[in-house]
Amino acid sequence: MKTMMTYLTLALTVVISSVMPTAQAEQTIETEQYIIHYNAFNSTFIAPEVAQANNIVRSKYSAMLNIAVMKKDENAEPKPVKALINGEVTNRLQQLQALRFSLINEGDAVYYLTSFTFADADTLDFTITVQPDPNKEAITLRFDQQFFTD
């Protein structure tokens, strides 16, 4: 039960961070079958006790990327699904960081989290592949975002 509450608190923190004025707004890509939500934010937006409970490095030089994949059904009600997610992030100096995503499965909510480092005023380029169906081609997300230390 405590673990479930910890994950729920983390999920709530992620949602809140996506609507904070200083956070990057959540972004979405939609295909015929899937809706992919993603947002990146400074790890300092996560409460210290939640970060500690989930082994998340909370630092002014650390940020997180959250990805959730929803499959559209015949009733137009998206349902969360698992996916194979891989990615990398590079800065303007072409320094590359491989992203390792952790699955968070809360029954009605399925999402993936990863962390990465940045320097103040760094603009990072993300390339992420999302493959909800292993028998079909992956969906590629590409975006850039600037990060600032607190």
Rank of each mutant, 00 (worst) to 15 (best):
T44V: 10
V15H: 13
D108A: 10
T6S: 13
G87F: 14
Q146P: 02
T13L: 09
T13P: 04
I104L: 15
I139V: 12
R92W: 00
I128S: 15
E26V: 03
D122W: 03
N91L: 05
E106I: 07
P80C: 09
P48T: 01
Q97I: 01
Y111I: 04
I85W: 14
Y38G: 15
D125C: 08
Q97R: 11
I67C: 12
L84R: 09
L8W: 06
P132N: 10
T149L: 06
D150L: 03
T127N: 13
T114E: 08
A51C: 01
V130L: 13
D108S: 11
I139N: 08
I16G: 06
N135V: 00
K82G: 08
L93N: 07
M70F: 13
T129Q: 15
T44Y: 07
T9W: 01
N91V: 01
T129R: 15
P134C: 10
G87I: 09
A119T: 03
K82N: 08
S59E: 02
T117M: 09
E88I: 04
P21D: 03
M1V: 06
Q146C: 09
S115F: 04
M70G: 05
T127C: 13
R100S: 10
V69R: 06
D144G: 12
A23F: 05
A25C: 07
E106V: 04
D120G: 05
L124S: 07
A83P: 01
F148H: 13
N66M: 09
E26M: 13
N39S: 14
F101G: 02
F116H: 03
T149C: 13
T28R: 14
V15K: 13
L10V: 00
T114L: 14
D108R: 12
Q97K: 10
N55P: 00
P78Q: 12
L10Y: 07
R100N: 11
I128R: 15
Q27M: 08
Y61K: 08
M5F: 05
T127G: 10
